[in-house]
Design a protein around this nucleic acid. Structure first.
Length: 505
RNA sequence: GGGCCUGUGGGUUAGUCUGGUCUAUGCUUGUUGCUUUGGGAGCAAUAGACCCUGGUUCGAAUCCAGGCAGGCCCA
């Protein structure tokens, strides 16, 4: 058909995910990528609206769990970075040497961090005596202040969060929402009296991640990152990864247990009830616009986006049909939308003077969960026709519309979860061979579009062997181990440690 | 980190190899008007581009260098 491509507004098939993704974010009007700086897209109203709704989910969790919202400055003086770099390089050296960090002296080694930040070196025409950088994350500025705020055990726990933009000078290929240079970022930082307090916080973080992922209808793999992939300064790092349709995993949330390692570097201590000075224990929990990237990638299809109802900027679009032939249509449509909005749904009216087909296609591309048509025919029978983005059309009574539609949205969420789960279960597979003999040629065995589940309990060099051999990256150890011990893929020791290897974004 | 490719109206595309025919092609989109309107309507008019800087040349969208931007592959 000549207008085949036109019929889909030039959307490549989703089976070609690497072309589909960058196309759909622009066609669905989430962002405009033409701003002339690499990795810095312009957020358009529709995309921003969805992102704001994701932020609201995070904010809701924060308030529910007693965190308070702050906003710290964007600029950080270089001197503070030095403090952090010393901590990071000390821990890194300790890790490499396999010794306790406290046994190492502070050295002046410069970490690679400096290369990844944007520097502000001038104020007007004057060169700044102390250069400043744009936060890549906010540990440094926040902990500087925390050490002023926390003095007594009564000040703890301190549970904070902020939703801000952070900056990273990415040199690799950038991708909307997935790898960008200006990152819309959520970060929660907490301070506790002891390790137990921080342990509990990590548990709470895990629950919050699960709740948010549920709202977004996204299944995720949670694992503890290997030591070498642990956030600088952290005792351990846990991460939630979403499996994208091309088999690559996307890290969408992380939470770090710092123990008292950062507290040492930033002099974060308090007086306990006995009047003794104690070091604080800390955690952080971070998420970003990658959540939106995951939603786009996971739920979208050949026809466009599919928005989960929880973050759909419009959950329902009401479209008048043949309103020119019946003056009652427009008022009825407006009344219906008002009804839906009054019942707490996000509904809008598309009263553009275009053909109905155009409206359907437009909102289909944008992934609106339910499109409602209302025309003269329906008015006679007091009904309207609802079309689901996930498929199907139903006639519903006008007086029951809000309740029915609310129910249908729940059904759509369930359907999206089912679809996502079945996609992921296709993409996550057991490793095809029992052990990695170095003679094996794995090219014909490894499928780069698959996430492999393996038994692995090796050390750094075993992991390096594994990664080099397979060309995949180790995500880390899962929370749910195998029920029965299995043979480790590399060491051949029996283990219940379940791990995933995949190509990561 | 290493290598490769690309840059033409808002989008997409012809032209680039082999400099002059380009005062730059088609489709789409935008705007205006009329007719239309239950899943992408039609006709007409109109608007709109050679990434930037430098070089070679009588002459550059086309060749060369650098920059910026985008994409791909490998580590």
């Amino acid at each position: 058909m000549a207008n085949h491509s036109k019929a889909k507004r030039g959307i490549p098939p989703k089976s070609d995910f690497n072309s589909w993704y960058p196309a759909i974010v622009e066609i669905a009007d989430l962002v405009d990528k033409r701003y002339p700086i690499k990795g810095m897209d312009v957020w358009k109203p529709y995309g921003l609206s969805a992102m704001n709704l994701i932020d609201q989910l995070a904010r809701g969790e924060m308030l529910r769990t007693g965190h308070q919202e702050y906003r710290f400055p964007l600029l950080v003086p270089e001197a503070l970075l030095d403090k952090e770099n010393r901590l990071v390089s000390r821990l890194k050296a300790a890790r490499e040497a396999g010794v306790d960090p406290s046994e190492l002296r502070l050295d002046e080694e410069e970490s690679g961090f400096k290369k990844e930040v944007y520097w502000v070196t001038h104020g007007g025409e004057n060169k700044l005596e102390i250069p400043m950088f744009l936060r890549p994350t906010s540990e440094t500025p926040m902990y500087t202040m925390f050490s002023l705020w926390v003095r007594s055990h009564a000040d703890l726990p301190l549970k904070t969060f902020q939703i801000v933009n952070t900056f990273r000078y990415e040199t690799k290929q950038t991708r909307s929402f997935i790898r960008v240079r200006e990152i819309h970022f959520f970060e929660a930082h907490t301070v506790h009296a002891d390790q137990h307090g921080a342990d509990m916080q990590i548990q709470e973080d895990a629950e919050m991640v699960q709740r948010i992922m549920h709202d977004l209808c996204l299944p995720s793999l949670v694992s503890q990152r290997p030591v070498w992939d642990t956030f600088p300064g952290a005792w351990y790092t846990k991460a939630a990864d979403v499996v994208m349709p091309n088999g690559r995993t996307l890290q969408v949330a992380t939470y770090h247990h710092y123990r008292d390692q950062w507290a040492g570097a930033f002099d974060l201590s308090y007086e306990d009830p006995n009047g003794e000075t104690q070091m604080c224990h800390q955690t952080t929990f971070g998420m970003s616009e990658r959540l939106l990237g995951a939603v786009v990638g996971m739920h979208g299809d050949d026809k466009g986006l599919v928005m989960p109802p929880s973050i759909a900027p419009f959950q329902v679009v009401v479209m008048p049909v043949a309103s020119h032939s019946d003056g009652n249509v427009i008022p009825a449509v407006q009344a219906l939308a008002a009804d839906l909005n009054a019942s707490g749904l996000r509904a809008t009216v598309d009263s553009r003077d275009v053909r109905p087909g155009v409206k359907h296609y437009d909102w289909e591309i944008k992934g609106v969960p339910i499109r409602v048509e209302l025309g003269p025919r329906d008015l006679k029978s007091s009904k309207c026709v609802a079309t689901l983005r996930t498929g199907g059309k139903v006639e519903i009574d006008l007086d029951e519309a809000p309740a029915k539609i609310r129910q249908m949205l729940l059904g759509i969420s369930d359907e999206l979860r089912n679809r996502a789960n079945s996609l992921v279960s296709d993409l996550v597979q057991e490793f095809p061979i029992e052990n990695l003999d170095s003679k094996d040629n794995l090219d014909s065995i490894i499928d780069e579009g698959i996430v492999y589940e393996i038994a692995f309990d090796g050390n750094d060099s075993d992991a390096e062997f594994l990664e080099r051999k397979t060309g995949l990256t180790l995500l880390g150890e899962c929370d749910d181990p195998f029920a029965e011990p299995r043979e480790c893929l590399v060491t051949h020791n029996p283990t219940t440690k379940k791990q995933y290897i995949a190509r990561m974004y």
